[in-house]
Simulated assay, not measured.
Amino acid sequence: MSETPDSLRPKYKRVILKMSGEAFGQSGKTGISIDETLEIARQVKLVVDRGVQLAIVVGGGNLLRGAQFSAGGEAIREATAHYMGMLATVMNGLAFQDALELHKVETRLMTAIRMESVAEPFVRRRALRHLEKGRVVILSGGTSNPFVTTDTAAALRGRELEADILMKATRVDGVYSADPEKNPHAVRYEKLTYQQVVRENLRVMDMSAIDHCMEAKLPILVFDYKKVGNIERAMAGHPIGTLVTDSLK
């Protein structure tokens, strides 16, 4: 059955969308794929046109991961590697900003690391104002602190910007009891509580991010953004992916 405009009416007013760096590249390859980036921008435009206030936290794993230098001895210190990873998120943010603007979406790129010639510094009140004006806010640079993942950055920004939900866009269709590629008996969860995630050590987000969301009662949706139309469905509250809340009711 085809979806109607009413069925895609947004359930959430303000959303934090976490996009990993891999979303902007081709699977198994490094670098930025213009086609992949433009496709995400096309999907984002659809939900913004429906009135969703959207802030997007971008990762940088398609370009560089700080952890990849962890075995490199003393040539590059771990903290330095993490700063390099944060700079990679700014590169993705710049590419994504141009892709969105090609689709006539008004944007603001904000970064936790000051670099005014390419992006605005993240200022909470300014970000809120952009959202209220219907601009997509692209959040890069992590938190500007090493040893903090972009998952945790997304949770923190979700709290700061008073989002209704944090959505983690991935290449899998939810959270499983085990790795489905290794265990054919792995079960996909439709709903979980924060306590279950912690107790069973499930791969939803890192535990610091889970703690922040649990404290703020900020729901988390993990879903497959690669399936056409899923970003719209997620914003409309369709039962896709895995929803993590404080209760299974």
Rank of each mutant, 00 (worst) to 15 (best):
P5M: 04
D6V: 14
S7T: 09
K11S: 09
V15A: 01
E22I: 02
E22P: 00
E22N: 03
G25H: 03
G25C: 06
S27L: 04
K29C: 00
T30R: 11
G31R: 08
T37I: 07
E39K: 06
R42L: 02
Q43T: 00
Q43N: 14
K45P: 12
G51C: 05
A55K: 03
A55G: 07
V58G: 01
G61K: 03
N62A: 13
N62R: 03
L64M: 13
G66C: 11
S70L: 10
A71P: 12
A71M: 14
G72V: 12
G73N: 09
A75W: 10
A75V: 15
I76D: 07
R77N: 15
A79D: 14
A81Q: 06
M84W: 07
M86D: 13
A88I: 10
V90K: 08
M91I: 12
F96Q: 00
F96R: 00
Q97R: 11
L100T: 01
L102R: 11
H103L: 08
K104D: 15
M110D: 08
T111V: 07
T111A: 01
A112D: 07
A112N: 13
A112W: 00
I113R: 04
R114S: 04
R114M: 11
E120H: 13
E120D: 14
P121K: 15
P121E: 10
F122L: 13
F122W: 07
A127T: 09
A127E: 04
H130D: 09
K133Q: 15
V136E: 05
S140F: 12
S140Y: 06
G141T: 14
G142I: 06
G142V: 01
S144K: 07
F147W: 10
D151I: 07
D151K: 06
D151V: 03
T152D: 12
A153H: 05
A155L: 10
G158F: 07
G158Y: 08
L161T: 01
L161K: 09
L161F: 11
A169N: 00
A169S: 07
T170C: 02
T170G: 00
R171C: 00
V175Y: 14
S177Q: 12
N183G: 10
P184S: 11
V187C: 15
Y189W: 05
E190A: 14
Q195M: 10
Q195S: 13
R199Q: 08
E200D: 12
N201G: 12
L202P: 13
V204Y: 13
M205C: 09
M205W: 01
M205F: 11
M205Y: 06
A209G: 10
A209D: 10
E215H: 13
K217V: 08
L218F: 02
F223H: 00
K227P: 08
I231Y: 04
R233I: 06
R233Y: 04
A236M: 05
A236P: 13
H238W: 06
H238G: 03
P239Q: 11
I240T: 05
G241V: 10
G241N: 04
G241M: 05
V244A: 12
